[in-house]
């Protein structure tokens, strides 16, 4: 969009101006969507080639020397390894598009069933983490931005480095020792799926995940709040003597949220990585536990392939949505 077009805008009718704005938004959505589709396609391709990384013949590896020719053929079909490579690839894309992620070798259950059983637990864990992390990160980041040059800002910087450098499986075990074994205020392991009861099992793992989520969120928020503080409208608000709450929300936080939201895809990726480990520490039957226990340790290739694909797709979808929301929140990010 050129300045020439911009200059013309006021002289035209209001309808034209709205249509002009809609055009930008639509172009933006279409181009983002195209990009996400391409990356999603790339994610599927990588999931496909994952199985081809197995050195030698996966079927031979699974069956050893015991396989009869019929059994070998059956396994080949189950893993989608029959036919030429392009055939296998197209067939894989086709079944993934139809929502079929294959069948577990060990339990003969469909991978979809495994994911449908375990994914909700992980999503609950992530939801609780996000709520908890925001409650901690919002006030922290504002304080760290305002008192950037004091001991508080310095402590904030060092403390977030230390938190990010602490592995979640270690902090998880230490908090488990403290809260579940010593203080007995949290269950040591296990899970119940019903709503209010599950929070009892989720708050401690979510607190551990906050060790990852809070430093990342608070750092991004802090730097955008610092940028916002330099804006003239903030000075105006100070001069006008607005109430503390109105000032914080309307003049500091809301204009600073867009960069954080546009990073949501990245954050969900970090969170999912950490969740795999935390689920195993707390024995939560989530998708990370399925990946390790039902997939990797049992050499169940379709389960690994399917779950890794789902992980990638979640990030692609969340990135797309967060792009849209941040563009809507702050039109300056539209390029």
């Amino acid at each position: 969009m050129s300045t020439h077009q911009m200059a013309k805008l006021p002289s035209r009718s209001r309808f034209d101006a709205v249509a002009f704005g809609m055009g930008i938004i639509q172009n933006r959505i279409v181009s983002r969507l195209l990009r996400s589709l391409l990356v999603g396609f790339g994610v599927m391709t990588i999931a496909f080639f994952l199985l081809r990384l197995v050195p030698g013949d996966p079927v031979q590896l699974l069956l050893g020397d015991t396989g009869t020719p019929e059994l070998v053929e059956a396994y080949r079909q189950m893993l989608g390894l029959d036919g030429t490579l392009p055939e296998q690839y197209l067939r894989y894309l086709g079944s993934v598009m139809q929502g079929d992620l294959g069948t577990s070798i060990n339990s003969s259950v469909s991978v979809n069933t495994i994911i449908a059983r375990s994914l909700p637990v992980t999503l609950w864990l992530i939801a609780v983490t996000i709520v908890l992390a925001l409650a901690l990160a919002l006030p922290l980041s504002i304080a760290a931005a305002i008192y950037q040059r004091t001991w508080f800002g310095h402590t904030f910087r060092v403390a977030s480095s230390i938190l990010l450098a602490t592995p979640v499986f270690y902090s998880g075990l230490l908090l488990l020792l403290l809260f579940a074994i010593q203080l007995k205020v949290a269950p040591v392991a296990g899970y119940r799926t019903t709503f209010p009861t599950n929070l009892n099992y989720l708050w401690l793992p979510a607190l551990v995940l906050c060790g990852v989520m809070v430093p990342i969120t608070a750092r991004v928020l802090q730097s955008s709040v610092i940028d916002t503080l330099d804006q003239e409208f903030v000075e105006t608000a100070v001069v006008r003597g607005l109430g503390r709450l109105t000032f914080t929300w309307r003049y500091l936080l809301r204009p600073s949220l867009a960069p954080t939201i546009s990073l949501l895809g990245y954050m969900i990726g970090q969170l999912l990585s950490a969740a795999v480990v935390v689920e195993l520490v707390f024995n939560l039957p989530g998708i990370g536990t399925s990946l390790i226990v039902e997939g990797v340790l049992l050499r169940d290739y379709p389960v690994v392939q399917g779950i890794v694909l789902v992980f990638g797709m979640i990030v692609v979808i969340v990135s797309f949505l967060s792009d849209l929301v941040s563009g809507w929140l702050d039109p300056r990010t539209q390029t």
Partner: peptide
């Protein structure tokens, strides 16, 4: 796009 640990595990 993949979560780092998940794809390394894969």
């Amino acid at each position: 796009a993949f979560p780092f640990l998940a794809i390394v595990i894969g």
